[in-house]
Nucleic acid binder design. Structure first.
Lengths: 284, 284
DNA sequence: CGGTAAATTGATCTTATTCAAACAGCGTGG
DNA sequence: CCACGCTGTTTGAATAAGATCAATTTACCG
């Protein structure tokens, strides 16, 4: 349970005192829409439309469940989890957010955030006061539709996860999770086949509806089958095609030593994103 | 696999030839927004803004996966399932829709519907061409926000289901499912404690990530515990509080004969909606 | 250097799935 | 009208998958 206090007025940038005030960057609307993969033509007016960014320390919340909704947040760097609490206070991870993901859209419905977003490493978000965004809608052609499709995208992503949870077994879900993460990193220009998990096994389990031990076992199984290499938080995807196959059929447990000899990693990552994507660019 | 062909131009009402053309009702925007529980002040202009309805026979699709997105649909009567197909053609139920639910919002993101909606009984939908709705947004104050919050509501509903699937065991999920349905019927003014399931056990299982036998067993367990009475598709909720308890803890298997004597059904249905709701009116 | 949190692995137990059989409704056609 | 077949439901017994409990190892942080 992180103890960080998140005071976030729409217009004022609040941050841990360790960061100098000067580092709080302004982002203009052009960049923002571009980051969100919205096809809004760049314009000088949008360049003048500035949004504040906010640093979020590891363990700190971006917003809390129950807070009044005022802003959307677009992640600029770092890693986040979005969680829901039940009446007993136990949390369920709804989503992991990386760069350029949208957060807080679920607060629009009721005027309060039902979920809560917590940074899993030192991160940065763009604060997007919803009223200002809505106002921009009226001056900026195409933004309106962009905003709708942005929300719809979230919907599709959640449906993808629903599919994974209902249709796939433990190994399948973990495989889908890894491929999704790989794809999202790839879409940002980072390496698709090697990354560091920012979350614990428990958080992955919560996300996928599994226990932490089950997640760990799936990782080990994939490793000894030569599909990935696991070293705690470090993941190397060795055989993405095999991993995709593992979504639907049990993994053939290769003998452990085989890992070092079989180094002929198939690497066609195209069309390989199983979960709807944290927030993917609209591939039906 | 239903063979119905769904041709649905935005403006023209298409229907199976069995229905006389005269029965196709027009609905004005006031009614529409009211049905969607949007707080849009009624106005004479909105009264003139008419939307076409369409009858959908049992087994017929409202729209198909892959169809171009043009319209949202608001259910006016009947019962629907929204399903997603995987590459092997097996379907996963994403949602059940009853009266006044929104359908098709997931098509906004990509311009094509990723999912497909099928009527489970003779039903009726209001066809809402999205372009017209978006146009209305500019003339009708408050509609814009209403539309955003409508999409957000869907998001919250999906998150509720994600929670149920990840956090609850088989009986818990089935209990949550029943309570959700009860609550939604209640919100429409129908009986909360007695209803007819329009879908099969298999479809419920698909929705909840369970096998049909498991769903059936859960029903039987609740029945013999005196929480509900099951007769195939007919469900009576006898003890809603007990059912809610059953979400989180295993049901104490009462002896079967107890069912007839214990008729002191607790009936406080308030604050009892476990799943986010098919599309609920924004209770954080 | 010690203490804590996370991860791995094994053994056991519980739960849901699978396989199978029987049964109940329902519509169809004789 | 009844017989028939079809689909959906229920129930049981065996199996498999994942959860639970527990012990050990490893990294990380002060």
């Amino acid at each position: 349970m992180p103890t960080a206090t998140a005071s976030h007025q729409p217009t004022v940038t609040s941050r841990p005192s360790t960061y100098p005030a000067s580092t709080s960057v302004q982002v203009n609307a052009n960049e923002l829409f571009c980051a969100l993969r919205l096809n809004i033509p760049a314009s000088p007016e949008l360049e003048r439309e500035l949004f504040t960014t906010r640093r979020v320390a590891e363990g700190e919340t971006v917003f809390r469940a129950g807070d009044e909704f005022h802003c959307l947040y677009v992640t600029r760097s770092g890693f986040f989890k979005s969680v829901l609490f039940d009446e007993t206070g136990t949390e369920k991870v709804l989503r992991f957010a990386i760069k350029n993901d949208l957060l807080g859209a679920d607060g629009l419905a009721s005027g309060r955030y039902p979920s809560e977003v917590i940074a899993l490493e030192a991160s940065e978000v763009i604060i997007v006061p919803f009223a200002r965004l809505a106002a921009l809608t009226r001056t900026c052609a195409g933004l309106e539709n962009g905003l709708y499709s942005l929300l719809s995208r979230e919907l599709v992503a959640d449906q993808g996860l629903l599919y994974v949870m209902a249709a796939l077994n433990a190994e399948g879900r973990v495989a889908a999770f890894l491929l999704n993460l790989a794809e999202r990193y790839g879409a940002l220009g980072y390496a698709r086949n090697a990354f560091v998990l920012r979350m614990t096994r428990q958080e992955i389990g919560s996300y996928l509806g599994l226990k932490l031990e089950t997640v760990s076992r799936a990782f080990s199984a994939f490793d000894s089958a030569g599909l990935i290499k696991v070293n705690l938080k470090h993941i190397d995807i060795v055989d993405a095609v095999g991993l995709r196959r593992a979504m639907h059929e049990p993994v053939l447990r290769a003998s452990r030593q085989a890992a070092s000899t079989e180094r002929r990693a198939t690497r066609s990552f195209d069309r390989l994103n199983p979960l709807g994507g944290g927030t993917q660019p609209a591939t039906a």
